[in-house]
Amino acid sequence: MVKEIERAGIPVVEMCNLVPVALTVGANKIVPTISIPYPLGDPQTSKEVQWKLRYHRVGVALDALTADITEQTVFNVKI
């Protein structure tokens, strides 16, 4: 899926928890998420904490769309 989008010349960031899977599948831009069932917000934490995490990581992903990379890259997240 991600490869077809990239093949069409549209930059794409895959956000996922299992970074080794994304690397194996061949995603070029990867932003880690926190888990499989809740990639962008741990239900054990408050709505505010979940929002902050999601806002930060999706923000990193958007910035990653503008990054000029030469190889498969996993972008760092702070929270």
């Binding site: 989008i5 549209i10 930059p11 794409v12 960031v13 956000m15 999706v58 992903a61 958007l62 769309l65």
Partner: peptide, 13 residues
């Protein structure tokens, strides 16, 4: 492409 999308965020589980 029809809608001229410039970039995609794909979330995977």
């Amino acid at each position: 492409k029809e809608d001229k999308v410039d970039g995609v965020i794909l979330t995977a589980t």
